[in-house]
Design a protein around this nucleic acid. Structure first.
Length: 255
DNA sequence: ATGGTTGCTTAGCAA
């Protein structure tokens, strides 16, 4: 199974790029984050013309996640389903070809110490509880998306500058480790150990030209998911009107 | 260095 995850930073602004990318790479599954629009603005017809169907958790203006697949998704579920009154569309789950797939957009967190920061840490704890309630570590499961966390310093071009920030803070990293302790591994790190692999570069300060990036888009998998290959499509960050994130592509084997 | 850029929505917020 070829699976990719991509924060598109508005699906409307990225429709042409999204369709071109799908046609070129033809993944079995593509998880999207930051649709930034209600369900009615999603380009269902355009992706259908390329052979994909999409399921989404969407809202106006902010957030929004989707799972696109060539074989239709089953058992679609939206949100964290924990009784919390939370209008933010940050999780969609579906089963494709026997694999349970979660497309997640973890809160950015604003500034450390802010309300948004508390929401981020709480959201990560709620995601851990979601897995405990709705999933099993001994079944094939992928949790992928924009985690807004660089797991380790090797995932950051200039670790000193980002130390203590919302993307690198120890508390956020600890929540991610807790999530993984349930039974998930960072699949890219099963096949690539080197530093210098990033998935997000700020639009500002010529970050891409200086390769001043962070790897905050992750594909986590249970033991039954083997990763044969993983890479970031850095070229997709270049050219006219790119997202500030590049797609992460993994080749999986399900056992 | 509290800047810088992009997108949504209409000047300000979020990232």
């Amino acid at each position: 199974m070829k699976l990719a995850t991509w924060n598109v930073n508005s699906v409307r602004a990225r429709e042409a790029r999204l369709c071109a990318w799908l046609a070129r790479h033809q993944p079995d599954v593509l998880c999207l984050q930051e649709l930034k629009g209600s369900a009615d603005v999603f380009p269902h017809a355009a992706v259908a013309a390329l052979g994909y169907s999409a399921v989404l958790a969407a809202q106006r203006t902010y957030n929004g996640v989707a799972i696109l697949s060539r074989t239709p998704a089953a058992a679609v579920a939206l949100g964290l389903d924990d009784g919390v009154d939370d209008p933010q569309a940050r999780l969609v789950a579906a089963t494709v070809a026997g694999v349970r797939i979660l497309s997640v957009y973890v809160p950015n967190g604003g500034e450390v110490g802010s309300d948004k920061w508390a929401y981020k840490l709480d959201w990560l704890a709620r995601l851990s509880r979601y897995l405990e309630r709705h999933a099993r570590a001994d079944e094939p499961l992928v949790v992928c998306g924009d985690f807004n966390i660089a797991p380790e310093d090797r995932d950051v071009a200039v670790p000193e500058r980002w130390r203590g920030s919302v993307l690198c803070h120890d508390d956020a990293r600890a929540r991610l480790r807790s999530l993984c302790a349930w039974g998930l591994v960072d699949l890219l790190r099963r096949v690539r150990a080197e530093a210098g692999i990033y998935s997000w570069w700020d639009y500002r300060n010529l970050a891409l030209a200086r390769d001043d990036g962070l790897r905050i888009d992750l594909v986590l998998g249970t033991e039954g998911i083997r990763c044969r290959d993983a890479a970031v499509d850095r070229d997709e960050r270049k050219g006219e009107k790119p997202s500030d994130h590049a797609p992460v592509v993994v080749e999986l084997e399900v056992s």
